[in-house]
Write a protein that binds this DNA or RNA. Structure first.
Lengths: 153, 153
DNA sequence: CAAAATTAGTTTCCTAGTCAACTTGATATC
DNA sequence: GATATCAAGTTGACTAGGAAACTAATTTTG
């Protein structure tokens, strides 16, 4: 606990530790997936599109907590890499839907393996029950903040 | 648990939940400090310089896990805002040191209060003992990854 | 002590986001 | 049915950071 008279320090905030560890884990994962030519955000999109019906950009934006502008550019990059395909959706000329192309579909399991490895490496410092507890706490916070996030399932 | 045959989903990774919650907490904090005209990274620098001897940019870079290039620009912005001062350090013409200017010093307690509020709001979904446990786990991970981070003390 | 290597910080180019203005298509209202 | 409004996506200006080339000052080495 800090002295009564001094302002709270960085280390006194849970948010600080969260950001510190999260950034390290994400950077580690970014380095891994870079070898497959994609970014973390691109992995999230690819996985979200895997094994489900084609999805609207706006839906992705909501799930990923990104703006529609960001998704638009992200989709551009994935299309340029031939991993994802844009289609006109339904009768509505505005709506489109994004779907995996074969190359993108094939990539998902490899990226998932990298994610598995990264998780294993990043959290090996915790005992199994600690990992479970961490997950429980994080999920609880996500729920409390209505971070509905990726159903992928 | 995912089916044996399907690749792991986003939700199956602890890193995913960590990033999700961390981003939400950081964005929330970013919105708060914006009212004081600074960014989260700037708060970290200001707090790190508060109540200690002037510090070299390279030292800050290491503590914050940022490149020296990033710190150089960050320092530029803080100097432009008159919150921080650059000095030539010691006899070595290369080294410099960064120190708070009065305005910067005065700002720290106000930003610390915002950080307190943000932490309170972000983690109110957890019981006190859960918060302590989360902090313990995060610190343990930080230590395991040699994220020595900010001593501020 | 001159030349080479090293170190601290800066700068340039690039990437990936946000925000807000814009375009275009659909819907609602009069 | 013309017009106003709304919704989906795109675009452009801007921001923050990383990587690597660069500058300048010090230190090491021959």
């Amino acid at each position: 606990m800090p002295e009564a008279s001094s302002p709270a320090g960085l280390e006194d905030h849970l948010g600080y530790w969260l950001r510190l560890v999260s950034n390290a884990v994400s950077q580690s994962f970014a380095r891994r997936v870079e070898a497959e030519g994609v970014t973390v955000a691109e992995w999230v999109v690819l996985r979200a599109l895997y094994g489900v019906e084609p999805m609207a950009p706006s839906q992705l934006a909501e799930r990923m907590g990104m703006t529609k502008g960001a998704i638009s550019k992200l989709a551009d990059r994935l299309v340029a890499k031939d991993l994802v395909e844009r289609r006109e959706a339904g009768g509505d000329g505005r709506r489109q839907s994004l779907a995996l192309r074969p190359q993108g579909h094939a990539l998902v399991p490899r990226l998932a393996a990298l994610a598995d490895q990264n998780d294993a490496g990043s959290f090996e410092g915790l005992a199994p029950e600690e990992r479970r507890e961490l997950e429980r706490l994080l999920r609880k916070l996500a729920a409390a903040h209505h971070l509905t996030a990726a159903p992928t399932a």
